[in-house]
Every structure is written in structure tokens, then in C-alpha cells.
């Protein structure tokens, strides 16, 4: 009771004895933040607005220049050119294949490993977790050469599977830790009950525990899908000799190299590359943001 009174009192000391005008300004002070926030955020959104507007402009209008964001006449020619001539249609299919393969690889490897590591008293558990955590602090970008050579030796260099393996591996640590934490938090009784009912290790995992882990599966799948979709370095290295396997990011890069002046076509290509993933993100915002935030908390 007394606490509530105190809370109610707190705004008071700031206000008394002050002239009315100052008081009014004080009350509206918080709204002034919008004067800073709106331009700041416009700076962040402008490139996307420009990209979408340019994708619908005619090449002639783009040549004339001007800052208008609304096309004089709307056209789909740019999308047509990007989709067929610049092969963004193929690139989209490649990107989807690549991203789904990465997600499946990560899910299989991290859920099984996370489950095994959640078992109390597993010999060698601490060593494995230690190695996983330490490698998190070593940059991975420079190890691309041995990865490239290993995938060549395995004969996987002429398919997207090799690239997916290279992309999935460094991203395993956080999912493993997430699954481990989740499975460790599930009461042992549940597993014991399943065992009493005659379920073996595999069945307990697949039928009892995995369905419970649906939120973790969702987070891991979404995060890795977005990361794989946006990957550039790994797909670039693995498609150097196979242009037909390019993903959207790599395709955009080569399109820019060949047709650097076709701005409207490039803008259409950029839309094809980014709009789908932005839509996925908008629908599953919370899961994604929580996944990123999880890196800090864990």
C-alpha cells in the first residue's frame, strides 16, 4: 500500500514551483524524441524504398535521373529481364535448395548431438562442450581453403550439397547448445515413463522429445534459413566453376559485374533476392529476434 503511494508521488518533485510553460514543455519532451528517430529510421529504410521504386521504373526514366520515388509509368520489364535473361529464376531455386539443405543438416546434427549431450554423466561430455565453446571465439572465414579442398576430395564440389555442408558446420554451436539446454530441462520422469512403456532410445527421442522441442526447432530452422539465404562467401567460393549453381547473392554479384549500368534490372534482381526473406522475417519476427537475443543470454 505504502509503495504505491510512493510511486505515485515520484513524478511530483520534478514539477513543482516551475512556470507553467516549462511544465508543458516538460510534459511533451518525450515526443521530441520522434524528431530524432524518424529521420534516423528513414535513413535505414531509404535504400529499400529506392530499390523497390527503381525496379518498377523504365530504363529511360532511370537514365534521366531525378529523385522521385514514384515511377512515371510502372513497368514489369525489369523483373522480366532479371528473372529470365539474368537467370534470377534459376538462382531463386538454387537459393531455396541451398537454404533448405543447410537447415536440414543443422537440425539433424544439432538435435541429436544436443540430446546426447543433455544426458547426465556422459563420459567425454565436458571435453566436447569445451571444444565447441572455444571454437566459437575463433574466426571461421579464413579456414575456407581446407574446407574447399576437403569437399573437392569428397567429390561434392559440383553440387550445392558441398556448399551446404560448408555453410552448416560453423553455425552448429549455438543450435547444439540450445537443444542441449532444452532437453536438459525436461524432467527425467518423462523419458523413464517412455522407457517403461517399451520405447527405446530412438523412439523416445523421435516420438516424445522432438515434438516437445518444437519451439527450439522453429528458432534454429528460421535462423539458419535466413543466414543461408543471405550467405555469400561460401556459395561464391563453391560456384566459381559452376555458374548454373549460383545463389541469389552470387548471381547478383555477377550480374553487377556484367551489366553494371542496368540499374533498373539490378534493382529488380535485388528485390527478388531480398523481398522473400524480408516477408518471411516479418511473419516470424519474434522468433528471429529472440534467436539473435539468445546469443547474448546463453
Amino acid at each position: 500500500m505504502s509503495t504505491t503511494e510512493l510511486v505515485r508521488e515520484t513524478p511530483a518533485p520534478a514539477a513543482p514551483d516551475r512556470p507553467d510553460r516549462r511544465n508543458r514543455w516538460y510534459r511533451h519532451r518525450r515526443k521530441l524524441w520522434h524528431l530524432f528517430l524518424i529521420p534516423f529510421c528513414l535513413l535505414w529504410v531509404y535504400p529499400f524504398i529506392w530499390m523497390i521504386s527503381a525496379a518498377f521504373k523504365s530504363q529511360r526514366e532511370m537514365l534521366l535521373g531525378g529523385l522521385s520515388l514514384i515511377p512515371d509509368e510502372w513497368t514489369f520489364d525489369n523483373f522480366d529481364r532479371a528473372w529470365t535473361t539474368a537467370k534470377f529464376g534459376d538462382y531463386t531455386i538454387n537459393t531455396i535448395t541451398f537454404s533448405i539443405t543447410v537447415v536440414l543438416l543443422v537440425l539433424v546434427a544439432s538435435s541429436t548431438m544436443g540430446y546426447a549431450l543433455s544426458k547426465p554423466g556422459l563420459p567425454g561430455k565436458k571435453v566436447i562442450i569445451g571444444i565447441l565453446v572455444v571454437t566459437m571465439f575463433i574466426p571461421h572465414s579464413y579456414t575456407i581453403i581446407p574446407v574447399f579442398l576437403l569437399i573437392n576430395d569428397l567429390g561434392l564440389n559440383n553440387g550445392l550439397l558441398g556448399a551446404a555442408l560448408a555453410q552448416a558446420s560453423p553455425g552448429l554451436v549455438v543450435p547444439i547448445l540450445l537443444f542441449m539446454g532444452f532437453f536438459a530441462g525436461i524432467p527425467r520422469d518423462l523419458e523413464d515413463a517412455a522407457r517403461v512403456d517399451g520405447a527405446g532410445y530412438l523412439r523416445t527421442f523421435a516420438r516424445v522429445l522432438l515434438p516437445l522441442a518444437r519451439p527450439v526447432i522453429g528458432t534454429v530452422a528460421l535462423m539458419n534459413f535466413v543466414f543461408a539465404w543471405n550467405a555469400f562467401f561460401v556459395p561464391l567460393v563453391f560456384t566459381l566453376g559452376a555458374p548454373e549453381l549460383r545463389t541469389l547473392g552470387v548471381g547478383m554479384f555477377s550480374f553487377f559485374g556484367q551489366e553494371g549500368t542496368d540499374w533498373t534490372g539490378l534493382a529488380a534482381g535485388a528485390c527478388i533476392s531480398t523481398v522473400p526473406i524480408v516477408i518471411v522475417f516479418l511473419f516470424l519476427q519474434r522468433t528471429f529476434v529472440e534467436g539473435i537475443a539468445g546469443a547474448v543470454k546463453s
Binding site: 543471405n230 541469389l248 547473392g249 531480398t274 526473406i277 524480408v278 528471429f288
Partner: peptide, 9 residues
């Protein structure tokens, strides 16, 4: 959530 390479271009 957008591709760095694409946005760079």
C-alpha cells in the same frame, strides 16, 4: 535480414 552482397550493390 537482407543479403549483404545485394545491399552493397
Amino acid at each position: 535480414v537482407t543479403t549483404t552482397a545485394v545491399i552493397g550493390i
